[in-house]
Design a protein around this nucleic acid. Structure first.
Lengths: 144, 144
DNA sequence: GCAAATAGCTATTGAGCATAGCAATTAAAT
DNA sequence: ATTTAATTGCTATGCTCAATAGCTATTTGC
């Protein structure tokens, strides 16, 4: 019994494989971004700021599905580390900008992230890539 | 600025979509399994026990990638709730069995989970399903 | 002017996962 | 047979991420 192989009914289920694939990919990405001293959420936020200078903290929360309560400590930490700068846009909004140091860090992190994405899709046989991405979009809600 | 749409470079990246898709699917599944009073990990463990009566705690940890340190409180909690029963197999191994009550709970949870998986794949257009699952297996490491 | 919505903040919680270290038992090596 | 190594399970602890409740201040719409 102790050495018999277990029956795993999940192995063909989409949800289970989705979870496994994400776990594997995300732990890999965590390691890659650690070289930039960033966590996945942090890098994701920073790249949005990089592509949208002066955008509002609340806007980022909306597109990335992060509540304002969780945004606050994230941005605070990035500010304390001198990567990002909050700038009062009106009395209640913060416009976000990268510091000079932040620019460099994000440029590197973005390159690493792009390499990761390329490596990820490379693991899928080329003829499956297009249908795979299209199917994913149906499940992630991006296409809706 | 505050109302301009943000540029999101991730929307076509496999890793990002993978994460989004998993988030959406897993929070749905969390809700479904809550009706059985179970969390996803718990239901997954229980179904493995259901299909492999008397299997070892350590075996489950291996196939599901759960460390023994994390298995302990999980199994303890299921035992305290009268769903599972630990049985010393040798001096260091626990063989796991479902209680009568556990049988019923797991049967229901397994049905709910199967329904969820069916609903999930139904969201993918039928012609994309096969390549999607095959691609997923490449990323989840199941096919390796 | 006043009510409602928006934006951000604090504090706290829970799930999930990882690590370090410990004790006991079993298996392997000489 | 005795020592060594590997395994099984356990406690304790910490981290990340997400969720919630409740708060203040500001802005907007009627």
């Amino acid at each position: 019994m102790a050495d018999k192989k277990l029956i795993l009914r999940f192995t063909n289920h989409p949800g289970y494989n989705l979870r496994m694939a994400t776990n594997s990919a995300m732990s890999q990405l965590t390691g890659i971004l650690a070289e930039s001293g960033l966590r996945i959420v942090e890098a994701t936020i920073l790249i949005v700021v990089y592509d949208n200078r002066g955008c509002r903290q609340s806007q980022i929360g909306k597109v990335l599905n992060i509540s304002s309560a969780n945004m606050t400590p994230l941005i605070t930490r990035l500010e304390e580390r001198g990567i990002i700068r909050r700038e009062a846009a009106d009395g209640r909004s913060n416009a976000l900008h990268l510091t000079d140091q932040g620019e460099k860090i994000v440029a590197t992190a973005a390159r690493r992230m792009a390499d990761f994405e390329a490596g990820l899709i490379a693991r899928v046989p080329s003829h499956l890539r297009k249908p795979f991405l299209e199917a994913l979009r149906h499940l992630s809600g991006v296409s809706e």
